[in-house]
Amino acid sequence: MKDYDYYFFDLDGTLIDSSEGIIHSIQYAIEKMEIPVSQDLDYYLFIGPPIIESFQSFLSLDEKRAREAISLYRECFKDKGIVENKIYDGMVECLSKLKESGKKLAIATSKPEIFAKQIVEFLQLEEYFDGVFGATLDDGVRSEKADVIGYAMENLGVNHEANILMIGDRKHDILGAKENNLDSAGVLWGFGSATELETCQPDYILSSPLALLSLEE
Rank of each mutant, 00 (worst) to 15 (best):
residue 141 V to C: 09
residue 9 F to N: 04
residue 73 Y to A: 09
residue 185 A to K: 14
residue 134 G to M: 08
residue 127 E to C: 02
residue 92 V to A: 11
residue 138 D to W: 05
residue 69 A to S: 11
residue 96 S to N: 14
residue 39 Q to E: 14
residue 178 K to W: 10
residue 116 A to Y: 04
residue 151 Y to G: 00
residue 163 N to E: 07
residue 192 G to I: 10
residue 62 D to N: 15
residue 203 D to C: 09
residue 67 R to V: 08
residue 2 K to C: 07
residue 214 S to P: 07
residue 70 I to Q: 12
residue 82 I to W: 05
residue 109 T to A: 12
residue 169 D to I: 03
residue 187 V to R: 01
residue 202 P to Y: 03
residue 207 S to A: 14
residue 173 D to Q: 10
residue 137 L to E: 04
residue 113 E to T: 13
residue 113 E to F: 13
residue 148 V to Q: 09
residue 79 D to P: 01
residue 116 A to L: 06
residue 5 D to I: 08
residue 44 Y to L: 15
residue 195 T to Y: 05
residue 88 Y to R: 04
residue 113 E to W: 12
residue 17 D to R: 02
residue 215 L to C: 03
residue 86 K to P: 05
residue 208 S to D: 07
residue 191 F to V: 02
residue 106 A to P: 05
residue 164 I to P: 00
residue 178 K to A: 13
residue 21 G to L: 11
residue 53 E to C: 08
residue 215 L to P: 01
residue 48 G to D: 05
residue 194 A to R: 15
residue 6 Y to F: 12
residue 201 Q to V: 04
residue 196 E to Q: 00
residue 17 D to V: 00
residue 87 I to L: 04
residue 57 S to V: 01
residue 97 K to V: 12
residue 215 L to T: 02
residue 152 A to W: 06
residue 77 F to R: 09
residue 89 D to C: 02
residue 185 A to V: 11
residue 177 A to I: 08
residue 161 E to K: 07
residue 136 T to P: 06
residue 173 D to N: 10
residue 81 G to E: 06
residue 126 E to S: 13
residue 159 N to R: 06
residue 164 I to Q: 01
residue 167 I to H: 10
residue 63 E to Q: 11
